[in-house]
Design a binder for these strands. Structure first.
Lengths: 170, 170
DNA sequence: GCGTAGGTAGAGCGATCGTTCTACATCGTC
DNA sequence: GACGATGTAGAACGATCGCTCTACCTACGC
């Protein structure tokens, strides 16, 4: 079950949402076609399962065990986002990619909204930046999108913007 | 010719890169299948033609006739990006979407890189922020990605971050 | 030791895809 | 008014797609 979701996530992350056929997804999931369809009865649901898995992994990887000090927490969050990009997602946010691939899908958009809202809420809570909620999300989004082209330079820029947020807030 | 590119751009922008069939693209382009294939001999080239068209339109719409004062220029740029999002691209950056849909395509990645590099260069030139080049791009990327969910709130956050960039620079 | 639940392997289905090709219309030029 | 270039409409193609179905294989409770 979780093995299936993890395999699907890996397949979509590596090869995009258009390319992999259901047979490719079966190979990535490591089960038979029949079992795959039992847990995810259509290709669209395979996408949703993959994103659900990624959502959990992303939150855990970026927001677990943060330092209490807001400034340290922000630095840690951005560093971890950079790390995530470096190791997991070399071409931008998978949720935006999924929605872009199928802009008509309502459940996909709902998932994107939930994911981003949760990221923004966790970031705001950890940095005690209630007012600058959206600015914070904007920095994270910017870092995520700029990373594929600029790598650590994007991380540095994000950290500098983050610092200016903290100092302008108090 | 340009009518074809414009039609293709509209089709992909509205319905994503996966959904529209070549016959849909033909309808959007307003020509026959034969003529469509004459100018863009494969579906992949239709994508490239659409993005080329969008690139030109985006640059013109965001960077033409900017005020000379750096601070005013930055404000104008961000406002225009918000305007672009509001009227043209309700779900994020089309270039990132294209690459996300087909992460293996080399020409697509090259086009994305060229587009982003040109945007960054024009923004840096207009705001006299040579050093904060990447921070500037990061703000624009963040605004573009955050817009679909937060609209004008994202624009406000982007402007505040932009101001902090300007003041920390001098 | 046998029945049942749940797995695998893989052939097969209809639909749709990108692409090509044929047949016919239109138009500016001599 | 005939001609070649260029366009349209749309039939036809092989391939591939998402999905279903059949046939067979385990593993475990009674």
């Amino acid at each position: 079950m979780n093995k299936i979701s993890a395999g699907l996530e890996r397949a979509f992350a590596n090869r995009g949402f258009a390319e992999p056929s259901v047979e490719d997804l079966r190979d990535a999931a490591g089960v038979s076609l029949r079992t795959l369809y039992k847990y995810t009865p259509s290709r669209a649901e395979m996408v949703l399962a993959a994103l659900e898995n990624r959502h959990q992994r992303y939150l855990a990887r970026v927001f677990d065990d943060l330092p209490e000090d807001p400034s340290e927490a922000l630095d840690t969050i951005l560093t971890r986002v950079g790390n995530w990009m470096a190791t997991e997602s070399s071409h931008g946010c998978l949720f935006h990619a999924a929605v872009a691939a199928e802009p008509r899908s309502r459940p996909l958009r709902a998932l994107l909204e939930r994911h981003k809202a949760e990221v923004a809420a966790k970031a705001a809570a950890a940095t005690a930046l209630k007012g600058a909620n959206i600015a914070l999300l904007l920095i994270i989004e910017g870092l995520t999108q700029a990373w594929p082209l600029h790598k650590v330079a994007a991380l540095d820029a994000a950290k500098r913007l983050g610092l200016s947020l903290l100092s302008s807030d108090r």
